[in-house]
Amino acid sequence: MSRLSGFTNRWLVFLTALVLWQLATAASDNVFFPTPWQIIHHGWSLWFTTADGGFGLSDSIFEDVLPSTARAVGGWAIAAAIGITLGAALGRSRTGMQYVEPLFAFFRALPSPALLPVFIGLIGIGSDMKLSLIAFSCIWPVLMNTVDGVRSVDSVKTDTARSFGTPRTQWVAMVVLPAALPKIFAGLRLSLSIAVILMVVSELVGESSGIGANLVDAKAAFDFLSMWAWIVLIGIIGYVLNLALLAVERRALRWQPTRAAVASAKQTTKAGG
């Protein structure tokens, strides 16, 4: 019951905001601010209308939306793989980390969009450059969080595993990584939002395909309707990717109790004797 009302409540406010936006923009009639209805309508014609005017996925989906999204997800996945592996290795060695910690913290603090000229210089304009820039920017939060998580393994669990003569691979796979998982996921989420930013940024120069390129082109052509449509699309992509990652996280961290669940579990065990 409360769940249902919560659900309607959420969407109600969202829809109300949408309606208000519609009314305000329609009333002001400003070219900079098209109404949400116009934006949706335009987005439909951009992405869901084929060349002959019928319904279907447009060329823009295959030439702009999918390649851009694939680069963001791909770069992020590369960063995740490298970051977790390297982080798990470095987190086990305190001295090893001391050599590289300031450097990594520095890389994390670098505003990666400013590195775009460097990456263009080194790799050239192209998919490889974009992918590398995204991966480079996404690595640091995952890496640092993995190191943190791996270090936070409880001393009693360490002793327990040692007292059972646990071999190294089992120790890493079944104790260290699960213990570090909540932190790793926090890093992955941060990285994902960075990946979406860099997806846009990496397309701002050189080429004319991709989400970011279209956004800039629309602005340069004073095509505010398209600009808005692309901005909304980026928001939706960010939202969906985040949602997907949350679903994976929820599954992977299923074992983690919420405070409410712990409280109710205690109640039932007490009541049951």
């Binding site: 001393s155 009693v156 669990k157 327990t160 104790v175 699960p178 983690q256």
Partner: peptide
């Protein structure tokens, strides 16, 4: 160990 809450693996 004494501290069962820390000795058991919560993810298993």
């Amino acid at each position: 160990f004494q501290d069962y809450s820390r000795s058991l693996f919560p993810w298993l």
